[in-house]
Write a protein that binds this DNA or RNA. Structure first.
Length: 568
RNA sequence: GGUCGCGUAGCCUAGCAUGGAUAGGGCACCGGCCUUCUAAGCCGGGAGUCGCGGGUUCGAAUCCCGUCGCGACCGCCA
């Protein structure tokens, strides 16, 4: 692992940054300024290392081994250094952290900043769009992946310093919602069911009629045209249906602790005239082509073989055209990030190029691959899908069984409360920990995996730490003794926290953060096993260390939208 | 057929952007640890040609080329 230096070099209140700067200066003092990188080490190789001697071997006409030896021989560690030892081995220069000093500063910083420890200094407004499922039924687990990646990223980026606005783009002008509106006029809605599920039932039935009958197709087309023309009674029907479904969807999202700041309606960009404005601006470019009255962009020059149709020959506009206006609007508010499924990769490229033609900033896309069922792909239309609601229910049930088994004497209230936190946590974590570019096959036993280093294990580490602190409070002042290997490992993991926040935010990979949190947890469980706190001569110091850990792990869980139970 | 993504032990996965020292984990399997801060934990064990072939490099899981397998897309759908 290469540790990327902090982007804001002006801020040096981050421990690891301080230590790296010092290491850098020690080396520059001997060989002059060079482009230097540090990598994380473990075991006998110390805490971190640099391979600088390999890259300058040619320049100095000496072997890396020799250079490393010479540098290490010449270095004198200043008094009070954050580095305790420096060694050369195989051409690498290995550094050992002065834990005694670093730990004191680290814990003091955490106690001073509290939940703000690790907050980044990145600046700017981010418009992050995620979920954006069609209002034709409940979220299925594919939408769930979108929502969980999007929400986790929003949380991490926000903590890294950005001003993040979370948007849900509601596709109200498509065929799907029109079919739902058609269906609502012919079938009674099941009031017993959750709203989005009731809509799906209508949608599936109506869609069957749609596919079987040209007459129904015409009726639905008429609905779309009337909606676009803003006919009052049709508008109210569409809005009613969309809001009805969205209420159900939001209920699901809120169970996952996911909330959007604003909902944008596809239709609002038509109504405002922005879509037409975009169209006429694009028509003025040299890339526009006409073909039997249809208008499209020829983007071959940009490496995109498929033309982007903006207006059909019948004069109606397409989803992509409206989405261009939508993106233009978003980009006027801030830097745009979209969480999109892999099926939208082509559209993402087309949108990017078209926006470039409009002299608008290009959006960034986080593309995630599909979740499929063992028997094939999901489809709301065919009613073949696993809903997020189902997954939530199963996950909480499974969590309840676990709590009940492990804490049989606790109250029902306790079991239910813990089961919900653990169930939702496991669900979110199991999805966010996987890199978005990996396609997944959904298997219940994996989705309901409560094993080591998943969310329950992280939550458990927090609960264990809280249990210690419940029994004794750390004193304000503490002295750092010689640390054992478990304490060192724990301190080192905690030190990385601000780096990981920024790294995860900049690379837009919340899975990096999730994996870090598992590593931090691992170091705590090992510490816990071998390092008594309450019955130790270093009790006060260790209480302070445990306190620092709870601050960081709690914030870490929060950044993944996972609750940290005080007891479990 | 073309474009994009993925391919790491029986299964799942980290690392790949920024090439470095023994490829980290987890599940499953085997063997240990609860009179000591909650065992949702810890310790130990076996299991790997990093899909395959070439190239660049002092050094490749990581970069380049080729190839195979899987997925997504290639609508005047959304």
């Amino acid at each position: 692992m290469v540790l990327v230096p902090f982007s804001d070099s002006g801020k040096s209140d981050v421990m690891l940054k301080k230590i790296h700067s010092e290491a850098e200066e020690l080396i520059f003092g001997i060989i002059g300024k060079e482009d230097i990188q540090f990598q994380d080490s473990r075991g006998e190789y110390g805490d971190f290392a640099t391979n600088i001697c390999f890259s300058i071997a040619g320049k100095f006409k000496k072997s890396p081994q020799k250079i490393a030896q010479e540098i290490v021989g010449k270095v004198t560690l200043p008094k009070g250094s954050m580095i305790s030892r420096i060694e050369s081995q195989n051409g690498f220069i290995n550094f050992f952290i002065n834990y005694n000093k670093a730990t004191e500063l680290l814990i003091e910083e955490i106690k001073e900043k509290g939940a703000d420890f690790g907050r980044g200094y990145l600046k700017g407004k981010i418009i992050l769009e995620h979920t954006s499922a069609n209002p034709d039924g409940p979220l299925h687990i594919g939408h769930g992946r979108n929502a969980i990646i999007g929400d986790s990223l929003a949380r991490v980026m926000s903590f890294a310093g950005y001003d993040v606005e979370r948007q849900y783009y509601l596709n109200d002008m498509g065929k799907q919602l029109a079919v739902v509106v058609y269906g609502l006029e012919r079938f009674p809605i099941d009031k017993q069911k959750k709203k989005d599920h009731a809509i799906a039932e209508i949608y599936i039935k109506a869609n069957k009629l749609y596919e079987e009958s040209d007459e129904v197709k015409d009726t639905v087309s008429k609905l779309i045209i009337d909606y676009e023309a803003e006919k009052d009674e049709v508008v109210s029907k569409f809005e009613y249906a969309a809001r009805f479904c969205l209420e159900g969807i939001n209920e699901t999202l809120s169970k996952l602790y996911i909330k959007h700041d604003i909902i944008t309606w596809e239709s609002q960009f038509v109504r405002s005239g922005l879509v037409n404005k975009v169209l006429s601006e694009l028509v003025a470019t040299e890339y526009v082509k006409n073909d039997e009255k249809a208008i499209y962009l020829d983007l071959k020059e940009f490496g995109i073989e498929k033309e982007l149709v903006l207006r059909r020959s019948d004069g109606t506009l397409l989803y992509a055209t409206r989405d261009l206006a939508h993106h233009l609007w978003k980009s006027s508010r801030g830097k745009v990030i979209d969480i999109w499924g892999a099926d939208h990769k082509l559209l993402a490229r087309q949108i990017s190029v078209a926006l470039e033609l409009l002299s608008a900033p290009e959006p960034e896309f986080v593309i995630y691959e599909f979740i499929t069922l063992p028997e094939g792909s999901m489809s709301t239309r065919r009613g073949v899908f696993i809903s997020v609601d189902e997954l939530i229910k199963e996950s909480i049930n499974r969590a309840y069984e676990e709590v009940n088994r492990r804490r049989p004497d606790e109250s029902e209230e306790f079991k239910n409360r813990v089961a919900e936190k653990v169930g939702i946590g496991a669900l979110r974590f199991n999805i966010v920990k996987i890199a978005p570019e990996k396609s997944m096959i959904f298997r219940w036993e994996e989705a309901l995996d409560f094993d080591r280093l998943g969310a329950p294990s992280i939550q458990y580490a927090y609960a264990r730490a809280r249990r210690i602190l419940e029994q004794s409070e750390p004193e304000e002042n503490f002295e750092v003794p010689e640390l054992n290997e478990y304490e060192k490992a724990l301190v080192k993991e905690i030190m990385k926290f601000p780096f990981i926040v920024e790294n995860s935010a900049i690379s837009k990979k919340p899975n990096i953060f999730a994996n870090y949190l598992a590593g931090l947890t691992d170091s705590f469980h090992k510490f816990y096993m071998f390092t008594p706190v309450l019955k130790s001569e270093f009790k006060n110091f260790r209480l302070n260390l445990v306190l620092a850990f709870t601050v960081v792990i709690k914030k870490g869980l929060e950044l993944l939208g996972i609750e940290a139970p005080e007891r479990m």
